[in-house]
């Protein structure tokens, strides 16, 4: 027999999180390295903390992919241009940092045990956190990137454009 559980109010129970990234950007080569990454997540009462951590770390890796690597380009007739894993880059073990993770446990009033949804909860915030960190690093050069993934070519092109337009303080 399989038994399920459904909360009385089942419009979703959301967990909340804050992500902080420290990055190093090489403006000449365009490489971005994540030096430190901290996540604090409030998933309500944690039923199995090990599985919750796994979901958040896994989500982080996907979010890093969105921020720095993964792109599905199309040409102007709709032709997909990245159809292999040699073109569509997934982060590997060297692209994902050993992130630090902490939890708050604010119980949900709407569920038994006070649990909240946590599935791959780490995936949403990284593009914003990383892009903000990159832009903070490049601020003295007068550069702000508004497109993900933040590729070496996009970084260098933006740095050169800022230099040419004289926006750079350096």
């Amino acid at each position: 027999m399989t038994q399920g559980y459904k909360p009385v109010r089942d419009s979703g129970t959301f967990s909340y999180a804050a992500h902080a990234a420290v990055v190093a950007v090489d403006p000449e080569v365009g490489e971005v390295e994540i030096l430190d990454y901290v996540i604090v997540e409030d998933g309500g009462v944690l039923v199995n903390p090990m599985v919750v951590d796994g979901q958040i770390y896994g989500g982080l890796a996907q979010g890093i992919g969105t921020a720095l690597y993964e792109e599905m380009p199309f040409d102007n007739s709709g032709q997909p241009l990245a159809t292999t894993l040699a073109d569509y880059l997934l982060p590997g073990a060297t692209e994902v940092p050993a992130a630090r993770l902490d939890h708050m446990e604010t119980p949900s009033p709407y569920t038994q045990f006070g649990v909240k949804g946590i599935g791959e909860g780490g995936a949403i915030a990284p593009p914003a956190a990383i892009a903000n960190a990159v832009n903070d690093a490049l601020r003295p050069l007068g550069v702000e990137l508004m497109q993900s993934p933040i590729t070496p070519h996009r970084v260098v092109a933006a740095v050169l454009a800022a230099r040419t337009s004289g926006r750079s303080a350096a």
Partner: peptide
């Protein structure tokens, strides 16, 4: 060399 990720083909 600069590669988008470890082990990838280099772009420089």
């Amino acid at each position: 060399k600069s590669c988008r990720k470890t082990g990838e083909f280099a772009h420089a």
